[in-house]
């Protein structure tokens, strides 16, 4: 038999791709995608029902429900898929054969993260496909704003997924799910947390509110759903800023997760 191509065990990118591919296959075969297919079916059904129930606003109603469903479902899916694939594999020891290869733990985390994002992306495309089909059926044109709102939702999912990776790297599957769920909920209320600090009064409370405001992810930035549904203009500068914020936040969180995971005993 031939020996390996290189002593370093292939390129970093190819190793990440291998882990991502395995994670994607494992998640898909775990019937994770059954839920979005069901949700997509419900959306198409809802498109017909809304004709008689929405007093002529069926297009808006369908977009509203569709985008909210996409956001909620994708966030829940990314949390569950990450904690299932990462925390459980740490707990059950299925990572050991992979980690015994010349694979850095950070690469493993990135691969798993990429694989899960792939699953979420496929299911999001299924939902968006169903939503667009529903809109066409009720005679509402698909706007660019709708697609931008869906794209920003995916950036939000990226941030929530990175947080789930971080919590999975430091705790058990159940705790990681709970922590990531909380982070997702709090992420939509960071402005309120800052306000609360001001409302309580005192330097300490204000400082804590301020620190939390900047440390916690501001997921509201990614919410342009209302603007998309009501066809208000969404500036590309805003979208660019939100994407940059999301990518930077996710990168920092993944670096932190990798740093912690490198130092963790796995056996």
């Amino acid at each position: 038999m031939k020996t390996h191509d290189s002593e370093s065990g292939g390129s970093r990118l190819s190793r990440i791709r291998v882990v991502a591919g395995s994670t994607f296959l494992e998640s898909v075969r775990d019937r994770t995608l059954a839920v979005p297919v069901l949700l997509a079916g419900l959306l198409i059904g809802g498109a017909f029902l809304s004709r008689t129930l929405s007093l002529g606003q069926h297009g808006k109603m369908l977009q509203d429900f569709g985008l909210a469903g996409l956001c909620l479902f994708s966030n829940v899916l990314v949390i569950l898929a990450v904690t299932t694939s990462l925390s459980r594999s740490v707990e059950q020891g299925t990572l050991l054969p992979m980690l015994a290869k010349p694979l850095r733990r950070g690469e493993l985390l990135l691969g798993q993260y990429g694989g899960v994002l792939g699953v979420v992306l496929v299911s999001a495309l299924a939902i968006m496909g169903a939503l667009c089909l529903g809109l066409v059926l009720v005679g509402t044109p698909v706007s660019g704003g709708l697609l931008l709102a869906a794209g920003l939702t995916m950036v939000e999912v990226m941030v929530v997924g990175a947080l789930a990776v971080f919590f999975s790297a430091v705790s058990s599957p159940v705790l990681a799910t709970v922590f990531a769920g909380f982070a997702m909920l709090i992420g939509h209320t960071t402005a309120d947390v800052r306000e609360l600090g001001v409302h309580i009064g005192g330097r300490a409370a204000r400082a804590i509110g301020e620190v939390l405001y900047y440390a916690l992810p501001n997921l509201e930035i990614f919410d342009v759903r209302a603007a998309a549904v009501h066809r208000y203009p969404i500036s590309l500068e805003y979208v660019g800023f939100a994407v940059l914020y999301g990518v930077l936040y996710a990168t920092v969180v993944l670096f932190a997760a990798s740093w912690v995971f490198e130092r963790r005993d796995l056996s």
């Binding site: 002593e7 065990g9 050991l96 015994a100 010349p102």
Partner: peptide, 15 residues
């Protein structure tokens, strides 16, 4: 991690 290039490892009860 490169020390594991050229090494094969089988854990007890592989999963």
């Amino acid at each position: 991690p490169d020390s594991r290039a050229g090494v094969g490892f089988m854990p007890e009860h592989p999963r």
